[in-house]
Design a protein around this nucleic acid. Sequence first.
DNA 1: CCTTTTGTACTGACTGGTCAGTTCAAAAAC
DNA 2: GTTTTTGAACTGACCAGTCAGTACAAAAGG
Lengths: 208, 208
Amino acid sequence: MERSASGGGSTRREATRQKLYEAAVTLIAEQGFSATTVDEIAERAGVAKGTVYYNFASKSVLFEELLRHGVGLLTASLRDAAERVALEGGSKVDALDAMIRAGLVFIDRYPAFTQLYVAELWRTNRAWQSTLMVVRQQAVAVVEDVLRAGVANGELSEEIDIPLTAAALVGMVLVAALDWQSFQPERTLDDVHAALSRLLQGRVSGTR
Amino acid sequence: MERSASGGGSTRREATRQKLYEAAVTLIAEQGFSATTVDEIAERAGVAKGTVYYNFASKSVLFEELLRHGVGLLTASLRDAAERVALEGGSKVDALDAMIRAGLVFIDRYPAFTQLYVAELWRTNRAWQSTLMVVRQQAVAVVEDVLRAGVANGELSEEIDIPLTAAALVGMVLVAALDWQSFQPERTLDDVHAALSRLLQGRVSGTR
DNA sequence: CCTTTTGTACTGACTGGTCAGTTCAAAAAC
DNA sequence: GTTTTTGAACTGACCAGTCAGTACAAAAGG
């Protein structure tokens, strides 16, 4: 029943689940959860419908595990970026800037996941609402931590409102990136990063 | 046969359509388009299902008209705010600030519409995709116009990337406001406005 | 006046189709 | 020989859209 060491679960099964995640994330991002059928997911993943139900209890459970999986990747990437700057002795603003870039890289790599996340996050009355709350808090908390550290060491103004500013920064990156992907795909990641960086560092007003 | 002059459409019918808009916007914001049934919409509006189809060709058409209606309100409100500042002889940064506030007021007043807009905007493969594109461009264009004017009169840096910055600003307001409504409802509109204003004006870094 | 007609708005039972989830025997993979 | 997958058939709930009929007010006709 357990072939590789302990904990992991079999590789074959894991590969099937991965295929299902990938198929589901694309379809749900395009069409929404309710408009996506299990038959479609199975077909896109190249497995039989029975396999979906052998691996996941239901369509919603598949979706919830997908969410947890994706946000795990994102927070790890953000935390990693902040830490790398800290080790190099960079400032907290540098850390925020690095996190903006990490966010953009993530969205560039997993655009479907990001679409789906944004589309579901502010819904109420959904089965997976609590999963999303937890998962959102994890992501925002990473930004809040850096802001707090910046205020503590005097680098950022004491007057900033940490939760609101963190939310605004996340939103800025999220929406700018989605807009980039959907409506201005000819721009490069560096263009987008530069524009956001400028906004973060208050180099918008003033002719220099 | 025709009660009020010609052209306008009866008041009764208009009132029914309005009730349907209100019912639909709430339900779709909560549950998404596909998960919301026409029966639910009719029930919430207090009319029979047939009435929905008497007034709108289909569920999607109802939704599209809803979108156009809502974004019309938003752009009018943004343009109005910018114009008011211009008349008072304020700067372009002041105009942007006023638009941020107008955006927040709008979202505060029509939270369901905003949720629904964000949730559907970046979807692909949807029937109303083209409607959304048009409607998004209208809203973003208002911000771009002000940015362009600011650059022209030397108030804003020539190096800013207008489309990307506009998208980022809109995103910042949108996400911060939705977050405020969903996760920090105890905050006041002024709190949120102050946090965003600070970010816009680059008063985040530096201890003053 | 009264009554007949006409057009508009609305109603709600009904239909045809769709889809999540089930079942299971047999094959494949390991 | 155990786990995982297959594939196809099936069920039952659910739902978008339809349609024959109702309600009613205003006009037309007498």
